[in-house]
């Protein structure tokens, strides 16, 4: 049985179709990523899966419960890390966990036993009594993650878990998320950090304009959509160099003042980069797949 199964999910606001026929299948214990540019429908899809908004069409099964009909029962076994922290500013770190546990009907004495473990997970041992406003962005994020675990959920939804964090804080969150996966929890996260998706997710779906346009493991997606080598060239004279590159690399494109060459073997093109031109030779990444599939236009 899947941890989450979504079929033909649709949701419109007025005439704008935000989710336009999404199918998803997440296996238990899997870390599943939902990628997409701003406005792709990721957050709306998460809210639909939680039963917070009613779909116009489609079927959702979350941990075996039909949603939205039995969303409340499903949410007993689910944790949520929202895009924007909504910790309770009127309470301390520890009180946030106790009060949140009460919403799940957990008695304070039962939570009390779990608090040291949750604080340790959040890296907030010794900060039990700290006020929320005194915490750094990374600490708040970790506390939000710990809060999502008060009910010992089987599945955790995370909406952009590391947006706005510095690299140190982000790596710490990644480490914690891997730990959760090792414990057997199912994770469903949205992100637009390709590096994050590549490192954490077993499988992912790329969404654009309310639809899933590609799905698979990060490696499989790269292998399927992009040549393995990438050469980026920019600097004075890049336009004339680009003329030559067309004969040396299988696929060449220009974005602004940068020339991108893609291919199995990029050496011939690389050898001709000279003079004041700057270059970057690298392996193809998920970001290349993402940009190829969703385009390079700005989404606001």
């Amino acid at each position: 049985m899947s941890a989450l199964a979504v079929r033909g999910l649709r949701k419109s606001y007025g005439t704008a179709e935000v989710v336009g026929g999404v199918d998803l299948e997440v296996a238990p214990g899997e870390c599943f990523g939902l990628l997409g540019p701003n406005g792709a429908g990721k957050t709306t899809t998460l809210k639909l899966c939680l039963g917070l908004i009613e779909p116009d069409a489609g079927a959702i099964e979350l941990l075996g419960e039909p949603v939205p009909r039995r969303a409340r029962e499903a949410r007993r076994r689910v944790g949520v890390v929202p895009q924007f922290d909504n910790l309770d500013p009127d309470f301390s770190v520890e009180e946030n966990l106790i009060v949140y546990g009460r919403y799940f009907g957990i008695a304070p004495q039962d939570i009390a036993g779990r608090i040291p473990q949750l604080l340790d997970f959040a890296g907030l041992v010794g900060r039990e009594d700290a006020k929320i406003m005194t915490l750094s962005g990374g600490m708040k994020r970790r506390l939000t993650l710990a809060r999502a675990l008060v009910n010992d959920p089987q599945l955790v939804f995370m909406d952009e878990p590391t947006t706005g964090l510095d690299p140190q804080a982000r790596h710490l969150i990644w480490e914690r998320l891997r730990r959760l996966t090792q414990e057997g929890k199912t994770l469903v996260l949205t992100t637009h950090f390709m590096e994050e998706a590549e490192r954490l997710c077993h499988r992912l779906a790329i969404m654009d304009r309310g639809r899933v346009i590609a799905e698979g493991s990060p490696r499989a997606l790269i292998a399927e959509h992009i040549e393995p080598q990438v050469l980026e060239v920019h600097g004075p004279g890049y336009e004339s160099w680009m003329e030559r590159a067309h004969t040396l690399a299988p696929r060449v494109e220009r974005v602004g003042d940068t020339v991108y060459c893609y291919g199995e073997d990029i050496e011939p093109a690389l050898k001709t980069v000279s003079g004041e031109l700057s270059y970057l030779h690298r392996a193809a990444s998920l970001e290349d797949v993402f940009l190829k599939l969703t385009g390079r236009d700005l989404r606001d």
Binding site: L52, R75, V80, Y103
Partner: peptide, 8 residues
Amino acid sequence: DAILYAPL
């Protein structure tokens, strides 16, 4: 919003 993620 935070309360709504719980079974309420």
